[in-house]
Nucleic acid binder design. Structure first.
Lengths: 125, 125
DNA sequence: ATAAGGCATAGAGTTAACTCCAAGTCAACT
DNA sequence: AGTTGACTTGGAGTTAACTCTATGCCTTAT
């Protein structure tokens, strides 16, 4: 697959794909004879995984480390697992924050719906 | 309350509190005779609300607009409600993205725990 | 064979959201 | 009275994560 195809497939710009590769957020992509990127199935799986994590707000730093460890082989299995566990904890914490905000928004919207002007509004001069 | 007290109470730096006020993310804070911020209960409620929203990733732009409308009074009730609804939708979408990533992390960690080396790893040269 | 279009790289520029800095004011101790 | 320390402002600097630009190389249609 060409970079343009991959770009469309995953909704990431070619610039972003090149950038991800440059900083080691995805392993080095396969090239053809003239040095042009020719993404394999595996390259695509990496991109999809990374996109999923990035969309969820997982920090690039942690992912770069994960990819680097991955490329160092089986000796790093435990370290990789720890990174995933750490990121999972952070993700859970963020989801909880968001649930709190969501409940708050639900409550506020409900107030507006029942035409009850919120307390803050009343106090406001 | 002084800015330092509010800073500690909400875990936002004084710089951030001043910044939020400057850009209209919170309404202008009450001052004493010598121009020094003296946060009222209401100021604090705003800060707490904004912090909750920001922690959940709600965009500053939307919040600034909300605050601005708020200060324009009751005529803007409907517009404010629409902003909240829009932000709620975005929040729900983001939570869903994060749930997906979480499931994926759970799966991957489980793989590591059962000593099954992930498929990607096997394919990797 | 030449012009166009896609891709390459290195490095500069952008954006959001802070965070820091310099210079100055003011109340409260010593 | 002078020093200290928290506060003020306007504006510059930082960081993360892209995004764009300049320059140049291939391949392909004319």
């Amino acid at each position: 697959m060409t970079i343009t195809e991959v770009s469309k497939k995953f909704g990431l710009s070619p610039d972003t794909l090149r950038y991800y590769e440059r900083i080691g957020l995805i392993p080095r992509v396969h090239r053809n004879e003239s040095g042009i990127r020719d993404y394999t199935e595996e390259d695509c799986r990496w991109i999809e995984f990374i996109k999923c994590m990035r969309d969820a707000g997982v920090q690039i730093e942690a992912l770069i480390e994960y990819v680097a460890l991955f490329q160092q082989g089986d000796a790093t299995v435990e370290a990789r697992k720890q990174i995933l566990i750490e990121q999972r904890e952070q993700l859970i914490a963020r989801i909880e924050e968001m649930q709190k905000a969501l409940e708050r928004l639900n409550y506020k919207i409900e107030q507006y719906e029942t035409k009850v002007v919120p307390a803050q509004n009343k106090l406001k001069r």
